[in-house]
């Protein structure tokens, strides 16, 4: 974990949404005409109002390929149109740069157009940092593919919902340029080690104290141990050095049946944190012995939601070959 600890900073950024970036100008005939001239596009649908009126559109439309251009920053000073966010969706590139990946090359972009855009419309887009790949080596060098997704909207009058008009997937590689031939083999070796480390990012291990060691040691024996008072016989969880009911320090434990029901639950989606799955359902289980315990839920079909009151049964699973945790399997409601 030591070498690539900073990757977690990047993983935490994935899925983040960035605010609006507005177009400087409404869609207008002058800019469309100039664009068509420069690009050598002679379709009269874009420049001849009389012709356009006879088409299914009934009016001039802008060339779809101009979509990205409308919302670009100013030419010289790179200023964004008023009202635009000053959040930087490329912040992840700065983090990569800081960790030794100085070069950047745009790899590919895919544009999707939902509909034609007409004169007078005002566009803006929002951005999501869609993904950051594992470390890869290409002919250019070693680095990370970073994918952003921009969604373009046409601003509507107050009270109406803005209309999505298209989107764009934009991918770059942020990398360390390939070394000269004599350094290449060493570079390769580094990379393999790195990939190995990245691949085995482990679940965080619990901090264990003298107050709760019995609880954690139980899992290796496939036992769910609940602290029990040797004097008043009451149970308590989480474990403590003293009975919260009668205040004796004379405590033991009872092995729970592992049966219970779902008292509450959440389903984790963002941020994605390795090595956890997403979505990751977590239950608060009320054990039949009467105490509650949080743990991961298993046995859900895709798209199925857990239900409060659903019966559960404990299972023990070992992660990373070293950490055994209880997880609770949801018993299908019809059988319970």
């Amino acid at each position: 974990m030591a070498k690539y600890e900073w990757l977690s900073e990047i993983e935490a950024m994935v899925g983040r949404q960035y605010g609006r970036i507005y177009a400087w100008d409404r869609i207008n005939e002058a800019m469309v005409r100039q664009w068509c001239e420069i690009m050598g596009v002679d379709n009269p649908l874009y420049t001849d109002a009389e012709y356009a009126a006879t088409t299914e559109h009934g009016q001039l439309v802008a060339p779809p390929a101009m979509l990205q251009g409308w919302c670009l920053a100013g030419f010289g000073d790179k200023k964004l149109a008023p009202g635009s966010t000053d959040e930087n969706p490329y912040g992840v590139l700065e983090v990569l740069e800081k960790h030794g990946y100085p070069a950047v090359v745009a790899v590919n972009s895919n544009l999707t157009f939902d509909r034609y855009i007409t004169m007078g419309e005002k566009l803006y887009y929002t951005t999501v940092l869609d993904s950051v790949s594992e470390e890869k080596t290409t002919a250019l060098g070693t680095g990370f593919f970073v994918t952003l997704k921009m969604t373009y909207f046409s601003e509507q009058p107050e009270g109406l919902e803005d209309e999505k008009v298209g989107d764009m997937m934009f991918r770059v590689i942020k990398f360390k340029p390939a070394q000269k031939a004599d350094q290449k083999s060493e570079q390769k070796k580094d990379k393999t080690e790195v990939n190995k480390e990245a691949a085995v990012r482990k679940r965080p291990k619990p901090a264990i104290s003298d107050d709760n060691r019995f609880f954690w040691e139980g899992f290796a024996e496939n036992e769910l141990r609940i602290q029990a008072c040797n004097r008043c016989k009451k149970l308590q969880h989480p474990p403590a050095p003293v009975c919260m009911h009668c205040h004796t320090f004379d405590l033991g434990y009872q092995v729970a049946s592992g049966k219970g029901e779902l008292y509450s639950f959440v389903v984790m989606h963002y941020p994605h944190v390795a090595p956890f799955d997403s979505p990751n359902p977590i239950g608060l289980i009320e054990l039949e012995e009467g105490v509650r315990i949080p743990a991961g839920l298993i046995g859900l079909e895709e798209g199925e939601s857990p239900k409060i009151g659903q019966k559960v049964q404990v299972e023990f699973h070992t992660f990373d070959g070293e950490l055994t945790l209880p997880q609770f399997r949801l018993v299908p409601t019809k059988e319970s």
């Binding site: 679940r203 965080p204 291990k205 619990p206 901090a207 264990i208 104290s209 003298d210 107050d211 709760n212 954690w216 989480p238 959440v266 984790m268 944190v273 956890f276 799955d277 990751n280 977590i282 315990i293 949080p294 743990a295 991961g296 992660f319 950490l323 945790l325």
Partner: peptide, 18 residues
């Protein structure tokens, strides 16, 4: 991993990704 109370307490949640 040091057994300060808060570390021990977060141990009931973090290993599950909660």
């Amino acid at each position: 991993a040091s057994p300060f109370f808060e570390n021990v307490n977060y141990g009931y949640y973090m290993p599950h990704g909660f």
